[in-house]
Structures are given as C-alpha cells and as structure tokens.
Nucleic acid binder design. Structure first.
Length: 582
RNA sequence: GCCCCUGUAGCUCAGAGGACAGAGCAGGAGCCUUCUAAGCUCUUGGUCGGGGGUUCGAAUCCCUCCGGGGGCGCCA
C-alpha cells in the first residue's frame, strides 16, 4: 500500500485531533519504521525490482538534523542505489510506494539526494505523553541488554589516601555508565577493586608509621619513596590519639602490621564516605588479598605457564605478551622472586569472567592506558576473548584556582581532595561537571570559577525546570485544581508549538539513553537533559498552565506530569537530585 | 623514539559517513501588575589545524605533516 506517499506535503506541523481509540498498542520508533523499510525492500526484491537481496544493506533510521525534515529519516535509498543499479531518488520513490501502513505515520517524503523523511501524527506525541505521565521515570526502559551481564569496575583507588578529583571523574563516569546500562536492561554489577597487598601499601604503612611516631614525639622520618601528603600527618596524629603508644611499643614488624591494618581501614572509610557524599554506590568491594588467600594468583601464573607463554631470562620470569600484540614482553616474577602487579591483576580478571560476566567494563584514568594491551594479552593467552574486556579511559582532570593550575601528585602530597571539592561546590554541580564532557576530553575544574558562576551552572538549569514542575503542581492544588483522570482529559487541546516541542523532547528519552549506554557516553545525557529543560522553560514562559480554562488546564497539567517523569529519569541517570523548590 | 587522547565560533565543548556544522558562556538588542526572571526571545560570530586519499556524499574513515595533553620500570 502506498498511502503514505500520497500524504500532503503541507501536512500540518501541529497535531491532528486526538484519536478516540483507546487500546492502540504504541509502536516503538524508530524500530517500526525500520521494519516497514525492510518490508518494502523485501517486496521490491520479491517482485524483481531489485537485482540483489537488500537484506544486508546497512541503512539507518535517524533523526534528521533539520527539524523541518520531519521526525525520522532514512538513507536506505542512498545506501542501496549503487547495488540496485538505479538513482537514489528513483529507489526512494519505489521504497515509498511499497511502504506498508504504519501507525501514526502521516507522511513519507523523498528529499535531497534521496533521503526519505517520515513525519508522525500529533497523536503519536499524545501517546508519548500518556506513556510518560502514567508510567513515570522508568517508562523509557528497554530490555536491549537483558541477555548480557555486565560488570562495571571503577574508582578502584588503592586505600592509601583520600580521593582526588581525577578519581572522582572515573567515579562519576562509571556510576552514570552503570545507571545507563541498567536502564537499557543489562544486569549490572558495580565493583570496587582495592589493592591491599602490594608494595604501595607497605610504603603507605611505613609513612603512616613515621607520622604516628612523630605525633608521639619520636624523631621519625617519612621514607623518601613514601607518602608525604598532609593527610599522612593528620592520620598519624589521629592514630596516636586513638591508640596512644600501644603500637609504638610493639616490635617493628607487628607495629607496621597494625599500622597497615588501621591505615587501610582509615583510607577505605574515607573513600567510602566521600563516594557516598556524591551518591556513588557499589555492589561489591573486592580485596586483592582474597585472591592471594584463595591461591588464585598462583593459579593465574600456573595457567600462563601451562599455556606455554612464560619463559625465564636474566633471573626473571617473563610473559610473552608480545605474542598478542603487546609491544614487548612483561616481567611477571622479579629476579628476587616477587610477583609484579600484573599477576594479581590477571588473576582478578580471570576471577571476573569465571563469575559469569559476559562483559567487563573497567573505567581507568588516562595514565593507565599503556597497561591495556598486556592485560588483554593475558586474557587471550588464557583462552578468553579479549573483546569481552572493555576499558573506558577518562582523560585528566586539572584543578585550577582563579585560572592558575594546581599541580597534583598523590605521592608528593600536594593535592586538593575530592572531599574538599564537594564541600566547596556541592555534589550535584560536581557530578554534572564531571559527567558533561566526553571521557576523551581533558577538563579543567576551576574552583573559584565554579563557585563564582555557580548560579550559571547548567545543573541548576535542569534542576530549576524540575522545581518549576513541582511548583506548578503545588500551585494548582492551592487553586483547588485536581487533575482529572487522563482518560477524561482532552489532550487534543495541546496544539501550541511550545507544548509540542516539550513532547518531542520527551520522545527522545529512550533513544538518547540507548545511544549513551551503547557509546558509554554519559555526556550525551547532560546534553539531552539540557534540551528537555530548554523546551520546558519555553513552554512555561509561553503558556500559562493554570487558568480559568479548565479543560486546557488539565491537559497542560498532564503535559507537565509527562515532562516531569522525563526530567526525573534524566536527573536520576545522572545521579543529580531533583529539588522541589529552589 | 614508540603508544593513547586531542585540534570545530573570542572561550569551553557537542557532533561515530549524510541534507544549510550546533550548544553554553562572552558580545549586542529586548521581555516581569498574572503559576519561581536560577527564566524567555532576537542577534553578531566558522578556511571543522594544513595537505593528500577512499566515497554518490567526509568535521567524521585512511595516509601524511604541524600544534597541545598524557603514557611508555623487575612501581600500582
């Protein structure tokens, strides 16, 4: 049936009167259009109009950049023209003629070099409203990821000091990615891996021990290669205040073990607390020590050996990672018999896959990117598909004050802690800022600027939209307006361009989340939230919601309800609070 | 030297092969006796770092050159 091709070119941009149909199942866009195109191409192939099977054509159905081109567009005719042996526009015409009837679709027009632009009826947007308003913030969830169990491992900072802003970026990016993956249906586990067993912890203990003894009045020096941050001094004093000289009198080995245990708990406590301040939850905290205790570290090495990828040279044991694309082989056992850090890391990743995750996503800082090839090499050597391990690299976060960069180094100790940043700027603003840029983009967080411009911060723009929605509810209630049931509301009264624009933005939620999840791109959601807020603020300015016109008031209140559910979904995915008033 | 990221409006950044390259901020001009002006409208501003190539079509993919950031230990 070719009915759609005969639709008027000047089809009204505003909705037609609301359909009185009650139980029309809502199709999913753009999938429905894609199916219709495939169907049309199939029948063209079937009747001999196409020389080859179009089933393999890689066409897309996407939003046209220019809004006047309609709601959806496809490049199918451009993609297939070559193989069909006809001009794109001619193929597009055939395609349009063979399109089956599609609910809510009012026109399919050929445009430009051979695009087909699709326009949906206003009824579709009322369908969007109904769904969003009645089902709440979860209305756009999908089951795309139902078959793929994913673990997101992030932050994973060693427990030997406070978190800094770079760690925080990984935290926010990982957290939002996990939320996105969950929204599109993946079973997701969020895990924090901490190294409580290595040389760094020994150094940390020695540093803390020195600070502790200094606090007791002893003449102790923090080792050259130790940790020199202010917090070490503070925590040493804390330990002294808590335990007095009870540890100082122990033999050195026992004392250091005690200090290490205390310091580990102190650092982990600080880290957990800081993460809680910015609403970054974890399902599991995985200790490296447990891998040693269960023999998994030895086992990992044994399996590499059994696979034939270990050899001895210059007194050390090497892993032939270069056989899997790494630039050179790596030492796994040092000449004095100690494992290098990669061994427990290999054991850890084996453990992950043996726990049944189909995919493992690690969020790492840019300074670890060189480590990816050897880790993937180890998985491949042990028979795992390295493609199941995915590393998201976040570029650096620089801190600045009044435009002056602040240089930071954990070991040198000169750094501003994440906790301080949160105290200064607030959890919502920090989360927004850290989520708003592509992980590939280095960012500079200027504290003075963040404070000075806090009222211009886009996060408030989003939150303000929500606060307005809530305040409208309260105002309506105060005027004695009780929203009618949706079925008794005449949504066809919603014809103002600003109203339609709100619904069009609401309609984007599902596809935006899908794309952001697929691309591991939290920043798409901050941008989308901004668009929703813009549409809403404009609607608020252009249309008075609560008026003497009762029917229109009810319709608009339902529109507000739909927008609120989309805004809540967006803020929820970003982990940003939705204030009732500002 | 090798590897990764990056170069788009004055500034900060979106844009994973499509139509006329977008947004915020900054600059200019306006909008509050009515539901929150933390808001809204209009507007100025571009050799997508340079050069080749692939393609019907390139900011996007490939090569090369130039600039910026980061990483390259028997440290984690």
């Amino acid at each position: 049936m070719a009915i759609v091709s005969r639709c008027r070119r000047d089809a009204p941009a505003v909705p037609c009167p609301a359909s009185r149909e009650v139980n029309v199942p809502a199709p999913a866009y753009p999938e429905t259009i894609r199916d219709a195109i495939s169907h049309a191409l199939g029948s063209l192939y079937g009747d001999g109009s196409l020389p080859s099977d179009p089933a393999e054509w890689q066409f897309v159905v996407e939003r046209p950049r220019d809004r006047t081109h309609g709601d959806w567009a496809t490049n199918a005719a451009l993609v297939g023209a070559g193989r069909a042996g006809m001009s794109p526009r001619h193929l597009a015409a055939l395609l349009v003629e063979h399109l089956p009837e599609v609910p809510f679709l009012v026109s399919a027009e050929i445009a430009g070099p051979g695009f087909v632009n699709f326009t949906l009826s206003g009824d579709w947007y009322l369908e969007v409203l109904r769904r969003a308003a009645t089902e709440g913030p979860d209305h756009a969830r999908t089951d795309d990821g139902a078959g793929e169990r994913i673990q997101v491992e992030f932050v994973s900072v060693n427990p030997n000091g406070p978190l800094h802003i770079g760690h925080a970026r990984g935290g926010v990016v990982g957290d939002v990615i996990a939320r996105l993956l969950g929204y599109v249906g993946h079973p997701v586990q969020r895990e924090y891996y901490y190294n409580d067993a290595g040389a760094q912890m020994t150094r940390y203990a020695a540093s803390l021990d020195a600070a502790y003894r200094r606090a007791l009045g002893e003449n102790a020096e923090i080792p050259e290669d130790g940790y020199h941050g202010e917090y070490v001094t503070e925590w040493g004093a804390e330990l002294a205040a808590e335990r007095g000289d009870a540890l100082a009198v122990l033999p050195e080995g026992d004392r250091l073990a005690e200090v290490l245990a205390w310091g580990l708990a102190r650092a982990m406590g600080d880290i957990e607390e800081t993460l809680a301040m910015v609403r970054i939850p974890f399902d599991a905290w995985f200790s490296e020590q447990t891998l040693h205790d269960r023999g998994e570290v030895d086992e990992a090495l044994r399996r590499l050996e059994a696979a034939g990828y270990l050899y001895r040279e210059e007194g050390a044991t090497w892993f032939r990672s270069s056989a899997f694309g790494d630039e050179k082989d790596r030492v796994v056992v040092t000449s004095d018999g100690r494992y290098t850090y990669i061994v427990p890391d290999i054991a850890y990743h084996l453990d992950k896959f043996e726990r049944g995750f189909d995919r493992v996503i690690n969020i790492w800082g840019a300074d670890h990117h060189g480590y990816i090839p050897r880790l993937k090499a180890s998985l491949e050597a042990l028979g795992f598909d390295p493609g199941r391990l995915e590393i998201v690299i976040t570029q650096l976060v620089n801190i600045a004050r009044a435009g002056e960069p602040v240089r930071m180094s954990t070991r040198a100790g000169e750094f501003i802690t994440f906790r301080e940043v949160v105290d200064e700027v607030g959890a919502d603003a920090v989360r927004y800022f850290l989520a708003a840029y592509s992980p590939d983009t280095p960012i500079t967080f200027d504290l003075d600027e963040a404070k000075r411009q806090s009222m211009d911060n886009p996060v408030y723009y989003l939150q303000y939209a929500h606060a307005r929605m809530r305040s409208l509810e309260d105002y309506a209630a105060g005027q004695g307006v009780r929203r009618l049931p949706l079925a008794d509301t005449d949504l066809s009264l919603l014809v103002h361009p600003a109203e339609i624009e709100v619904l069009k933005q609401c309609d984007r939620l599902r596809e935006e989340v899908r794309e952001a999840a697929l691309r591991r791109a939290p920043h798409r959601i901050t941008a989308y939230g901004y668009d929703v807020a813009t549409a809403f603020h404009r609607f608020y300015t252009d249309c008075r919601i609560v008026t003497d016109d009762e029917a229109l008031t009810h319709a608009r209140l339902w529109l507000v309800e739909a927008a609120k559910s989309v805004m809540l979904a967006t803020l929820g995915l970003l982990g940003i609070t939705a204030p009732d008033r500002m």
